[in-house]
Nucleic acid binder design. Structure first.
Lengths: 182, 182
DNA sequence: GAAAACATGTAAAAAGTTACATGATTTT
DNA sequence: AAAATCATGTAACTTTTTACATGTTTTC
């Protein structure tokens, strides 16, 4: 049950509309959680019905028109409770690694190495982007606990992208002489 | 649609029963994909109905009795097709990072740092285990493509655990003086 | 006023999780 | 023969993904 709590966190940081939340999930929160707008709208509806959040008064109730949400006291309480929950580490889920393993039994070809290169490029781009965020954050960091915590999470995102770039470099180097001639 | 292909790969490496597969998912395949026995039995049923795998003749069809599966030619073809598919990198999903971010808005306490330490220990244990696998694999590595590919995937698992251990060390160091006194 | 962008939503399908049920085999 | 373990399975639920639908505001 992480998505509702991710939304509560984001709304506490700043009251937002569904689409704004979707965009923030593509950025900062997205380092370690993603969600589509469909998921977010549905979850906002549930959270509102549970009276953990509410629509800001200004908003009109018609379709196609922006609705801004804010967290109610009960929502904050729920988030405080949630952070004390304990959970086992997630086992990662990555199809690229599965595909690589599958090439071990059905045979490797040059195209697969090209796919690894493509992923390497994408991870490298994301890494650059995160580093840019880090530079920007450094400028307005107030030294508050929130800033420090957000900085740690961003650092995690950077470190994870570094893992990918480095591992992909190793994989490409080891496989590029093999593919295509067997 | 990764689970059926993970199963096809595992069965090509070695024909197995459902429970054996479950155990192999907890080990080698589990570096980057996990599945419960319920998922695996359901998927084995589907794969059998699609005639991508079959039950080995020896097995009797009664409940509670071991059923060993092997991959049919159509299953191998499907796996060959699947490895040529292209897919965007997965965005990671990690609740611990979300929780950390949530502490940024509801306040950090010493218990949360303890939780980070617990995760650090668990990742460190898994790292040791993977390194043990690597030592064992090195002994019987035939230099075949399959061995090299499996070695790369295992290395990925190790690098990912290293990411966690290192990041958690950093996070614990930065947070341990803060928690509890605000 | 047409097109593009913004914004919210519904529905159905697929994938994953949790709880429970049951039979067969081995050990004590 | 009871208990533990091995082994397969069902059912209900939750979460995520994919495809589609529709209204509003801004820009050209």
């Amino acid at each position: 049950m992480s998505l509702p709590h991710a939304i509560l966190t984001a709304l506490l940081e700043k009251p937002s509309s569904g689409l704004e939340l979707t965009r923030r999930f593509d950025r900062s929160i997205g380092y370690f959680w993603s969600a589509t707008h469909q998921q977010i709208y549905r979850e906002l509806g549930k959270l509102e019905k549970s009276e953990l959040i509410r629509v800001l008064p200004a908003a009109s109730p018609t379709r196609g028109q922006r609705k801004e949400y804010e967290v109610l006291a009960a929502g904050r309480d729920e988030l405080e409770r949630w952070v004390t929950e304990r959970e086992e580490p997630r086992s990662p889920r990555d199809p690229l690694m599965l595909r690589l393993r599958a090439t071990g039994v059905v045979g490797l070809d040059a195209d697969f190495v090209a796919e690894l290169r493509r992923h390497r490029r994408l991870h490298s781009e994301r890494l650059d982007q995160y580093r840019e965020f880090q530079r920007r954050d450094a400028a307005r960091d107030q030294g508050s606990e929130r800033d420090r915590v957000q900085g740690l999470v961003l650092q995690g995102g950077i470190d994870l992208e570094l893992f990918w770039v480095n591992w992909l470099d190793r994989a490409i180097a080891e496989l590029e002489d093999t593919g295509g001639h067997e």
